[in-house]
Design a protein around this nucleic acid. Structure first.
Length: 354
DNA sequence: AACTCGGGGGA
DNA sequence: TCCCCAGAGTT
């Protein structure tokens, strides 16, 4: 491996072929940090609109530090992994209070911020500050497993260290940003998981896997185990022009997000039985219970099978984690994708109010 | 080291 | 279907 030549080929290609992405138009470490958090386990095309809205509404450390959690989650709605948003704000508040609003530029300091792990630390340091630090994500492991013919299982946690060491040895000290981004851009555009475009690859000559004809056998990755199932009833309960909404607990799946009141079902039930079940849980009675939809929502580790119902009630004092809202107020509550599916079913049915 | 945590796009 | 995505926190 001619390290010098590899760096030059990679960086030269990146500077010529890189995509025009919103976060590549800023040098602000705060905004680059935002992009890196959003990009965790999330595709570029998905992130773009979220990133634009986010930096428009919260352009500075101060603005995000002062934001209400509900408006923060509303901006994050649909992007998933909602703890990222809360951790980001916690980290930003630390920067505001402990670092005078300046994102720190050493690995030790930036890694101490909430939500900033080994990858994000290296990404912000190299891209925003030009520090030659490794930033190893899934792309980098795939690309380097091929280039260096590394056959260790990339699903194992400790394997990441092997790649961090490799990057530390290979990284350009003249342009760490282009080097790290070049590896990731190569993974996204050329050195893809299936059918890599080796004939278009700018570093093909340096690639041991291509040389050995093993590019499709790498990386080695053991399979993830499959997920569980759970059944739920979700009921839109109207009282006059108000809907009953429930906030999920502050920890765990979809923490803090809002939903139509849900109950986990241990056995399949009829519509009239749903009414009794909720009456017990809510300490208020339902009428006109009607099933309006059924759908499945797949999370990475779990699948929800949801039956959606419509019902009426006399307004009653709800439990602590619930409140009555008008349709207008509902628009300001952060809801996750499965709840959005129910909301869409309601709207398409035409039962907007009453 | 294993598990949790979202959602969507592409093969 | 299954994979995988610019991963991090918790246990």
């Amino acid at each position: 491996m001619d390290k010098q030549q590899f760096q030059q080929d990679l960086i030269g290609w990146f500077q010529k072929e890189q995509r025009d992405l919103p976060w590549r138009r800023t040098a602000d470490p705060y905004q680059i940090w935002i992009s890196e958090v959003m990009l965790q386990q999330t595709r570029v095309d998905t992130v773009i609109p979220y990133y634009k809205r986010f930096v428009e509404k919260f352009p500075t450390v101060e603005s995000l530090a002062q934001a209400e959690e509900e408006s923060l989650l509303k901006l994050w709605e649909g992007l998933g992994y909602y703890s990222r948003a809360r951790n980001l704000q916690a980290g930003v508040r630390e920067v505001a209070e402990q670092y005078g609003g300046i994102v720190p530029s050493t690995r030790k300091e930036i890694s101490s911020l909430k939500g900033v792990g080994p990858y994000t630390a290296g990404a912000v340091l190299s891209i925003a500050y030009g520090v030659p630090e490794h930033a190893v994500d899934g792309n980098v492991m795939r690309v380097l497993s091929r280039i260096l013919l590394i056959e260790e299982d990339i699903a194992k946690p400790k394997t990441r260290k092997v790649f961090e060491q490799a990057v530390t040895e290979l990284i350009s000290h003249e342009d760490p940003s282009s080097f790290n981004q070049g590896l990731m851009e190569l993974g996204a555009l050329i050195c893809t998981p299936t059918s890599p475009k080796c004939l278009l690859c700018p570093v093909r000559d340096h690639c041991e896997a291509f040389h050995a004809g093993k590019e499709t056998e790498l990386p080695v990755k053991t399979k993830a185990k499959k997920n569980r199932n759970a059944d739920f009833a979700m009921v839109a309960i109207w009282s006059g022009n108000k809907l009953l909404m429930e906030q999920r607990p502050g920890k765990g799946l979809l923490a803090g997000m809002w939903q139509y009141p849900m109950l986990e079902l241990t056995a399949p039930l009829e519509a009239d039985e749903i009414g009794e079940l909720y009456a017990e849980a809510l300490n208020g009675s339902l009428s006109d219970v009607e099933k309006i939809t059924a759908f499945k929502h797949v999370f990475s580790h779990l699948t929800w099978n949801v039956d959606g119902y419509l019902a009426k009630a006399e307004e009653f004092t709800p439990p602590e984690n619930m409140k009555w809202v008008t349709p207008e107020q509902l628009e300001n509550l952060p809801i996750a994708a499965p709840v959005q599916k129910m909301k869409t079913a309601l709207e398409q049915r035409g039962d907007v109010a009453k």
